[in-house]
Design a protein around this nucleic acid. Structure first.
Lengths: 312, 312
DNA sequence: TCAAACCGTGCACAATTAGTGCATGATCGA
DNA sequence: TCGATCATGCACTAATTGTGCACGGTTTGA
């Protein structure tokens, strides 16, 4: 909002590519290229340098970016306090989150906002955590619900984002109904060390979590198959191809050939779900309200789990 | 440069009038009006309110301005350090100052820059101190040489400007050649308490200085006539209409019907001449270089005076 | 009390700026 | 060596921004 070129530059510094920046900001690649060139010209500085078939930030560029990070933060603070003082809400409010978060946390939030603030145009975007962060930078969304990763998303994250812990989401094991341990109430990961596993492909957050759970046990699991969607993984498991881990927030669906079991034993892997905003934007009334709603929803989920725990 | 609307808003907060802001920034009044309205709309805040036939900033507006002051400062710092690191100079460089400063300090500076940095387009603007400050805000000029006034130019000056003392310029008395004290080497103001005085009209910096010099003596001078230019004042004095004060930097010209005398006695009025820049812009190579040149020029003037002192 | 001078704003129109789509050259992987 | 990917330049178009003038409201001076 302060200057669209700042947004573009920040996204570029995060993605390192004109094409990805264009895709995230909604501009065409030529527009991104032109904006960066314009910035260079008006400052008289070389910001980007060719590298292979792509392009990278010069050190002067990185320095500029970190300065701009701080300026943008200050601007967000100012805009938020202004909005807060005037009670005026922004017209557009973008929310982002990965699949399960979008379903369980964002959908209720959007519904609530639609009801209480009908004049605000709420937009939901489902996207992977890293992409959510980039969308935040690009100002396409204003709030994201993602899985906290130990690696701070691509450098200088703490200069750009603020996060609030919503809840810890434990992982369960999913077994074929015919599995030898399927009748147990809970299963230790150690007992499944030799089973074939099904995990997610690529270097997703889930995959990192998956690996971490086993390395803490000193075990290297045998990943027999890879899937992208939970649905697919569950189908694989149902077919007896292996066992898998499923976050509690993700629903099993109507699959009756698999069972979900709590994890007992030394390693109790879980993922931490957090709400992320651009640094400085917290004071904004809509953000404040949304965070409260998200936390209430999270608490409801947690207490519901305790109740189930007692029932079961 | 960061956002033209910020510039406009800052000038408006200094002048308190759309028309004056337009004149200073070079926009038309409607453009200024539209820019302020646009800012209001995009933030959803009422920045200005009607007051009489003019408008004024709301308290929210003032709050926003002070936040923007800090952001602009940070941006100037960033841009300056970027320019400094790259060695790249800005294409345009504006200098402002009041009459005598322009002649004695700015002209040599401009000449020197023209010689050593021919690629920079140097522009000189002669203007009263307050106007110089507004021109700085409007980014029409980048450096101003003005008389430091005790009243910090219109609120929040220290959030917007930085100054460097160049020299203290003492005031001399100017007497008709036929005056009873014309033969003295130096004259005390007390001895002229009953003479008719010639001063500047309006509430100029000079006039404030003039009044201050006498109030420190507990004397209220009789101001018989008013003039805008030194030339005029000297002509009045030459005609025997009264006596006057003239800064040492101002030349007497070829008037042979008046004499200039040092001031002795309790009150030795002088004006402090300072170089002013926008806060944060100091690191810029051109500004740094200019300040050095100005200080060298000031030192030369001072040492030249000492020499004359010994001669006389 | 009325007219003239100002001030800020709205509106039609013009000028400048910014963005798109396609073509091009350059680089990397198979 | 061919195809894929990437950034960028260019002609064209869309959108933003600024201008000039007219108008309503307010103050000042006759």
């Amino acid at each position: 909002m302060i200057d669209p070129r700042f947004s573009t530059l920040r996204v570029f510094s995060s993605t390192g590519s004109v094409a990805r920046t264009a895709e995230l900001t909604g501009y065409s690649p030529s527009a991104v290229s032109a904006q960066l060139r314009e910035l260079q010209r008006s400052l008289g500085i070389k910001l980007i340098a060719k590298e292979g078939r792509g392009v990278r930030l010069t050190s002067a560029g990185q320095q500029l970016v970190s300065g701009i990070d701080s300026i943008v933060t200050q601007w967000e603070l100012l805009a938020a306090s202004a909005r807060s003082a005037s009670g005026q809400l922004q017209a557009h409010f973008g929310l982002g989150g990965f699949s399960t978060a979008a379903a369980q946390l964002l959908a209720p939030l959007a519904a609530s906002l639609r009801a209480t603030r009908p004049e605000v145009e709420v937009q939901l975007i489902e996207a992977q955590p890293q992409r959510c962060l980039d969308l935040l930078l690009a100002e396409r969304i204003d709030l994201a619900v993602i899985v906290a990763s130990q690696a701070p998303g691509g450098g200088g994250a703490k200069d750009r984002f603020e996060q609030t812990v919503l809840l810890d989401d434990p992982l369960d094991v999913v077994l074929p109904a015919s599995h030898r341990l399927a009748q147990r109430k809970s299963v230790a990961l150690e007992d499944l060390a030799d089973d074939p596993w099904i995990s997610e492909s690529g270097q997703s957050v889930y995959r990192a979590l998956f690996v971490a759970a086993f390395t803490s046990l000193g075990v290297t699991p045998h990943i027999a198959h890879e899937a992208v969607e939970w649905e697919t993984m569950i189908a694989f498991i149902g077919a007896g191809l292996g066992v898998g881990l499923l976050p509690r927030l993700a629903t099993l669906g109507h699959a009756d050939d698999v069972v979900r079991r709590r994890i007992s034993g030394a390693a109790k892997p879980s993922r931490r779900i957090v709400a992320v905003t651009r640094k400085g934007s917290r004071g904004s009334p809509l953000i404040e309200e949304s965070l409260e709603i998200l936390q209430r929803t999270a608490e409801r989920i947690i207490s519901q789990r305790s109740a189930e725990e007692l029932d079961g």
